[in-house]
Write a protein that binds this DNA or RNA. Structure first.
Lengths: 137, 137
DNA sequence: ATGGGTGCAAATAATTTGCAGGTAA
DNA sequence: TTACCTGCAAATTATTTGCACCCAT
């Protein structure tokens, strides 16, 4: 058995910058957006590093990753460290974190009915938020 | 108001080939796979056409599109013409179509609670199917 | 000292677009 | 005839990798 190698993470300026930006951002943004915004602020961080960092953070469960429409991945710091889903406005991308005990139970049950185990699921809700409805029907 | 232009579709050999292949295929396959398989069979269809065709078919609701892991889109002809979800084996990608009245209701309710309307959702379940569990735990 | 981290440039990979013919209706 | 359709090549776009150097531990 390969024991999980104890991997110590270095606390670098770049890691901190990415995390701080995501912590201060309420909505989902792409890796390229993270990079652009940090550069605007004078950071010298590289795009490659941003990609690597968000990947690490997503794997560690410190940020959420979702695909909004086009094949671009978007990230967001999650308040709730637990498993949850998102309700995203399709216009402004305003996001609400939601938990769905009902969905969790449902997915496990459906899986069982068909002989599938270790059920995982991706659930994202898209809708038009109150503000956007006012502006443009 | 721009009236929806009446767009008549041409019935071409290529369109038919793609649809027939998908009709004969039980699992999700990518546009490139569709192209490769048709070529193997002697078709001269171009990759571009495949991409354009699956996009049209997906928009028309004639096939389902999901993203399996990597940023590659996969397609599958759906039996059930109605809205449904999938339970996909993460090893062999064997797929079961499922309908979730519970999820439909849940998503609409959650949306309403937060002032969101016209709720859409993406729900995909991933698990390990019976056969794959036997082979490799 | 060491192994993780960084960034540039180049490489991949998926998908789209320009354009010059075809062809279904 | 008139759009729509096709396919090649080239362009885009998102993301990854090779590599030499840097720095947190």
């Amino acid at each position: 058995m390969a024991r999980p190698v104890e991997r110590r993470r270095h606390r670098t300026r770049q890691r901190r910058e990415v995390l701080e930006l995501l912590a201060a951002t309420d909505e989902f943004i792409s890796a390229r957006q993270v990079h652009a915004r940090l550069r605007e602020r004078g950071s010298t961080i590289g795009l490659t590093t941003v990609y690597r960092t968000v990947q690490v953070l997503a794997d560690a469960g410190e940020i959420d990753a979702v695909r909004l429409g086009s094949g671009e991945q978007h990230y967001r710091r999650c308040r709730d460290g637990h498993h949850h889903h998102h309700l995203i406005c399709r216009h402004c991308f305003r996001t609400v974190e939601i938990t769905g005990p009902a969905v969790e139970a449902w997915s496990r049950q459906i899986g069982g009915e068909h002989g599938y185990t270790d059920i995982n699921h991706t659930v994202e809700l898209f809708g038009t938020c109150n503000d956007c409805r006012q502006v443009a029907g």
